[in-house]
């Protein structure tokens, strides 16, 4: 497969590159805004888990008018700088990060908090869903520190087995919770966005970042595991019907007009964890299995031995207790 394959399979990936967005997810926020007017009247916005920065790009262009809006982007990872975005490299579970955000807004709370963060999926679905839920709850926890009353919170969710628990938890803090899926998010993807409007914490709630918000668990009355009562919030499909279909495969000459030209990705990842391993692999320095030819074995003339188990035993291991 050539490098154009992904452009054909995913029209938004291609459009993002062509329009200078750092990731295709920029379209998701734009389409969410189309539906919910998220940016209306917003002066201060926070982008949590911002890297690589496509949502910050959108926020910096759309929030406020002519540079009057303020955007703070927070991420644990380093992110390439963006004009008009204040960056904080920090942990969203730390109180200091919340204080720093407020500091940048000169003591004013934020109007909008967004979080498009997802953990690096491990492929074990229950672990990934848990990790995503923790990320969302951590984002919610810091949002309770920085969001103004009536403010809006948008975060990515994985619609897996326990998504109803997240809905019930979000409902405690917001007057309206909806599940929205922009057209630019693929049908095959389990991701969706919780759009929570009207921040209204329960009476007596004191924001506390020293204690993580933990998931709810199922109860027998309001949110049953397998009964008819489950908290399923209304679903809204965003983006108008004329928008491109993210599942459809398009031909490379989209409008027949301009000729297709391959565009490289806008912002390649900065210092991924596998960098060192890849460098070693490229230079052939990964440890290699000791092949028999490297072992000095002169067994060619030996009589054939049966490969019974006991001949394989390392005598040093034999006497040990079973270690389990």
């Amino acid at each position: 497969m050539g490098r154009t394959s992904k452009d054909k399979r995913d029209v938004y990936y291609r459009l993002a590159k062509e329009n200078g967005w750092r990731a295709r997810s920029a379209f998701k926020l734009l389409q969410l805004d189309e539906e919910f007017q998220l940016f209306k009247g917003v002066k201060r916005a926070v982008d949590l888990c911002a890297a690589p920065g496509s949502w910050s790009q959108v926020l910096s262009q759309k929030v406020g008018g002519q540079g009057s809006g303020q955007v703070v982007a927070v991420d644990l990872q380093a992110m390439a700088p963006l004009p008009g975005v204040i960056q904080i490299q920090g942990d969203i579970t730390q109180l200091s990060t919340a204080k720093e955000i407020i500091q940048h807004f000169e003591g004013c709370p934020a109007d909008l908090v967004v979080c498009d963060g997802a953990p690096d999926v491990t492929g074990l679905h229950d672990v990934d869903e848990y990790m995503q839920a923790q990320l969302l709850l951590a984002a919610l926890n810091i949002a309770t520190h920085v969001l103004k009353l009536g403010g809006c919170f948008v975060a990515k969710i994985f619609r897996g087995r326990d998504v109803t628990l997240l809905y019930s938890q979000l409902r405690i803090f917001f007057s309206s919770v909806l599940c929205a899926k922009p057209k630019s998010s693929r049908n095959s993807s389990i991701e969706a966005f919780a759009v929570c409007q009207g921040y209204d914490p329960p009476e007596g709630f004191i924001p506390d970042l020293t204690r993580p918000l933990l998931n709810h668990s199922y109860d027998t009355d309001f949110n049953q595991l397998d009964g008819p009562t489950r908290v399923i919030v209304p679903f809204v499909a965003c983006g108008d019907l004329s928008a491109y279909d993210s599942d459809r495969t398009y031909s490379l000459d989209l409008d027949g007009g301009s000729e297709y030209k391959y565009t490289p990705p806008t912002q390649p990842p900065i210092a991924p964890p596998y960098q060192e391993a890849c460098r070693l692999k490229k230079n052939g320095q990964l440890a290699k299995e000791l092949l028999p030819q490297e072992c000095s074995i002169n067994s060619v003339d030996k009589l054939p031995q049966p490969l019974a188990i006991h001949t394989l035993l390392d005598p040093k291991v034999e006497d040990n207790e079973i270690h389990c």
Partner: peptide, 11 residues
């Protein structure tokens, strides 16, 4: 099977 250093009987 853990064989230790190298496999027996081959090379």
């Amino acid at each position: 099977h853990l064989a230790g250093r190298g496999y027996p009987g081959l090379g």
